[in-house]
Nucleic acid binder design. Sequence first.
RNA 1: GGGCGAGUGGCGGAACGGUAUACGCGAUAGUCUCAAAAACUAUUGGCUGCAAGGCCUUGAGAGUUCGAAUCUCUCCUCGCCCACCA
Length: 764
Amino acid sequence: MTRYFPKEIEEKWQKEWQEQGIYKFDLEKGSKGKYYNLVELPYPSGDLHLGHWFAFVPADAHARYKRMSGYRVFFPNGFDAFGLPAENAAIKRGIHPKDWTMKNIETMTGQFATMGTMIDWDYSAITCLPEYYTWNQWIFLKMFEKGIAYRGKALSNWCPVDQTVLANEHIEGGRCWRCGSEVVQKEVEQWFLKITDYADELIWSQPPQAQWPRQVREGQNNWIGRSEGMLLNFEIVEKARKDNKNKEYIQVFTTRPDTTDGATFLVVAPEHKFVAKILAKEISEYVRKAQRKTEMERKEDRVKSGVFTGKYVINPVTGKEIPVWVSDYVLAGYGTGAIMAVPYADERDREFAEKFKLPIIKTSFKAKPKGEKKINYHLRDWSISRQRYWGTPVPIVHCRRCGLVPVPFKDLPVELPYNVDYTPKGKPPLATDEEWLKVKCPRCGTEGAKRDAETLDTFFDSAWYFYRYVSPHFGDLPFDKSKVSELMPVDVYFGGSEHTLGHTLYARFFTKFFKNLGLVKFDEFAKKRVQHGVILGPDGNRMSKSRGNVVNPDDVVREYGADTVRLYLCFMMPYEATSPWSSGAISGIYRFLKRVWDLGEKIEKVDLTVSDLTMMHKTIKKVGDDLNTFQFNTAVAALMTWLNYLSVKKVSKEEYETYLRLLAPFAPHIAEELYHSKVLSANSVHLENWPQYQDKYLVEEMLQIVVQVNGKLRDTIGIQNSEVKNQNYVQDRAVNSERVAKYLNGQNIRKVIYVEGKLINFVV
RNA sequence: GGGCGAGUGGCGGAACGGUAUACGCGAUAGUCUCAAAAACUAUUGGCUGCAAGGCCUUGAGAGUUCGAAUCUCUCCUCGCCCACCA
């Protein structure tokens, strides 16, 4: 009797599968339609961690199940290879970001192999290679052409350590999501994408067009934050002026124009242009103080502060003069940067009014001021400029005569030069490379024009990578339209909840832009989104090096084998849950696989009883249904239950063969090994069909009927399946049960509820 | 403050409105062993009882129902995301 040595068989089969190419994607092979199985592409940080395993393994089990069920499953993967961490690591260690990144990709690709997935690496994309980022530039130029990409100036989140602008989405509690330093506000000229043009299209309709989790749909809708309201003009009171000409106004945005009669003062943001005109010392001091505050401090500082400007405006509904105040609780970036304060109806306004003793009067909620209807969005245009080296160069030339000139398509790519001093200096690293920087203007031919020295946000790269996968070497367009129409949209997109407001929203935006260009025909790039949870450290905290609670998958694989790790990840929690790793529980999984292994020794020639068949067919159904609906934990539990059943009886070859097919998506190596050595098959288990269950075997011969009196369980009785339709028979049997008779005890039976094959309840 | 979600054994977690605690971990006892590990067998929600059994139990409380972990309402606690968005 051989023992289960995972290491040997796993390495053997990984090699064999590779050589035989059993996972090569073939659109022609399979009885059913295509199935695009996608997992968020990983960042090449150095090593695969447990999070990667948790993202990919259940997704792989799902893909394998779909493939065995006859779908033509497309499961590619790539690397999101540009970005700050490479640059920071490179600066720290003195290695070039490209070398660091490519080395990590090599390491991680090797680690991926140990996972035993069916990923077909012939379809892949590495975003830092010119073959990929050429098409970033192409898309950018199309966006520039359509006015979606534009150069603008804006107060921006600036990370002083990383020396770059940050998108709103990348600030966590006022700090840079990468380095954790405090973000400050700085006026910077930069490239934007007009995602706000698509704000309405990006709002999820009711009912949704695609199967995305409610949490994501609601989250995105809130982030887009559409609000309908009105722009109202408040005339500035100018005592010196006699005539009616040249009136000046402060414009406010409100969603409740009906409360205008309760507006007893106006508040403007410190950055508002009205404030700059007032020269009072007190005011400029307040403004300076507010501007010096970091985002962090403004948020922490819940006590309202402010100063009176000394100016008044006229409430258009009441005609009364009301004072204008400055306060930083009004945001410069939203609406018009000025509000009418209705302390009676708005809690924040009331707080302010109470603190500064301003009048609070009742509103009728019936006011009808004149104004322009206006829809405001919380969503801002997406800042894509990064003043860093390791990214896609912006394909624009700055010419003194022509201004912003796009690099002609035929001259793409604008390659990222290798030898550049990329240590932070307060200006983009590419701007220090004079030789690269200086070009002739592509439009007028003037010498001394300059390339744009900024690089694109890496979220630009990842907003469309899944299109590239289908034709990774295509040279005419970002992707082969015919391939995309065959394989897209993605059927299921696995990933983490941290991408609700960033990545997945951008990806949807790009798809809508592609549709406008006529490149695709669908509205959503993914039909279904499945979000996994987080594996915490054994101590229940998030894994971190500083806590010392990090579990390294390589170590666990070395101890138990990949199949055990895979099965454990599927079994220990629902896919969307966040739960701690348990080093005890994984040994139970290893024990389980050893029992599956040993069961192979027991195969005999035996006839299957009806209950054997029922058990088998029920398990086939349960495991298949659960794999289909991403309930991996209960699928594994069903396999365990069947194993417990098989362990105490004689096992037929048919049962064992079926067992291995059901196990194959979860534990591909051991299933393959036993399929050859014990079932004596010449074929790979992974090329077999998923077993079919038959309805006739799903019902047990003897049914256990629950007998209740007044809804309380009093007995269970066994009834032949053939008799369950006969209520009188069942009722007779139930009444005659001693334990039930005790409770009925001659009382009047007022009502009998019979649920066929399940339960009978006497109401007395 | 807003949104989404969750509260079930010692732990991770199962349960189309119909036998709550599947499956796994852990624990206890036993078999095997010189011993230990491994493996195997049995027990394992609580209270009560010699036992048969009885009663209670899904964060708290109410409601709907023949019947509620599941549906409704109120409250409490926790998690995630967003947040002075007018």
